[in-house]
Nucleic acid binder design. Sequence first.
DNA 1: AAGTGGTCTAGACCACTGC
DNA 2: CAGTGGTCTAGACCACTTC
Lengths: 245, 245
Amino acid sequence: MARYEHIAGELRDAIVRGDYPIGAQLPTEAELASRFNAARGTVRQAVAVLVAEGLVGTRQGARRIVLGSERSQSFAELHSFAQWARSVGHQAGGLVLDSHRRPSTPSEAVRLAITPGEEVLVVVRLRRLDGEPVLVERTVYASWIAPAVEKLDPACESVTQELYEAVGLVFAYGEHLIDAVAAGAEDARLLGVRRGSPLLRQRRTTTSQEGRPVECSDDRYRAGSVTFSIRNSTTANSLVRRAGD
Amino acid sequence: MARYEHIAGELRDAIVRGDYPIGAQLPTEAELASRFNAARGTVRQAVAVLVAEGLVGTRQGARRIVLGSERSQSFAELHSFAQWARSVGHQAGGLVLDSHRRPSTPSEAVRLAITPGEEVLVVVRLRRLDGEPVLVERTVYASWIAPAVEKLDPACESVTQELYEAVGLVFAYGEHLIDAVAAGAEDARLLGVRRGSPLLRQRRTTTSQEGRPVECSDDRYRAGSVTFSIRNSTTANSLVRRAGD
DNA sequence: AAGTGGTCTAGACCACTGC
DNA sequence: CAGTGGTCTAGACCACTTC
């Protein structure tokens, strides 16, 4: 582990433990540098991690202050329902309801950076959290990854993990649009809610490490099942997904 | 402007202009350093800005690649409906429907870091975008800021801006919880939608520069009026609010 | 005026990618 | 193995906050 990651971890632990309660001041850079026997730049890198996580606020000239004390799951977990579920202590389930190939629509072609009409794979999955149906995923995969997706177990728990193990694919970057929509007939039937009732929608496009679009998806969560959480400041943002309250 | 901000700006402009299309490689650090006559550390700081914005992806050993080319509004704009509206070319309006003081509930006291039962100011505002009602805000202000809030024009366009000009208050940090809820009777009447129809809810707590909680709020957007957008990677997140599609 | 974080430099070495 | 980004150091100077 890098030195700055170690220092960031120690500071995060201290904050979560309550050594530095919300509103308290963090030690100065000089103090931290001597305590951890590191250069000032390394300490700054460590603190930057906490700032990006939204746990610490910083302004020139003033001591840094603690803004929050919850350990945030964050990052890659926005890409994988199963990884997120596990990290918050729940059990994820999944079931493929439909899977077929068809030509891509113009908007899909743009989002996946393919030529319009090129074949794509459409998969509809119902996902459960501790047995309860909470999410309908309608995912469109680019044709180059379609064969690997079709080989997956229909009840596979983590698509992300299986694709990594099968073909070494890493879901590295994502763009997400979040809004609210009314449940359609199919949504309502699958999620066990009334037609027209509120759903939290997340439309996403996921990209490989190399910058190649892999999939785009329309995911709809039953209201109350999931909450997105963002900490931000005039200089930094941080996002995590949280279980419904 | 700092040197790294200048470099980041030049690179962002080049990306937005299409000099580096999506999927393209950015110049190497060494190349950028010599082009801008800056040290490598400064170039790295500049690129880090673009990575945080989600425009650029980076992995050790490989050239950096362009992930997106949309200029993102981002940061502070999550705190102010009016600032965000203006930045995307729309006109914000506001109207106070109710304003009264009452003792704080236990959960409000926790969120505002005050003693339970201490008086708070509750304000209900209806906000319009280009004349259309799109948002109901139910905001709870800590008592220390209440007098300044009560002095505001009920039709005031930007609460954030007015409070800054009146008492120098800066909304520096925020925590936001985003989910979907069904419109209640009052929501439905104010927003002109049917009762039970979907709303995008944003619950937020805002904090001053000094880390002092200022307000917590329950904001409900009419479905279709607003979308939250996040770009993320295994190493960075970035959030902006976008007008409904 | 002292304290503290923000910017910048210059150089060394390491880890990973891609040919 | 060459190219490239990631980590770390040491020190200088500046800008802002706080008293």
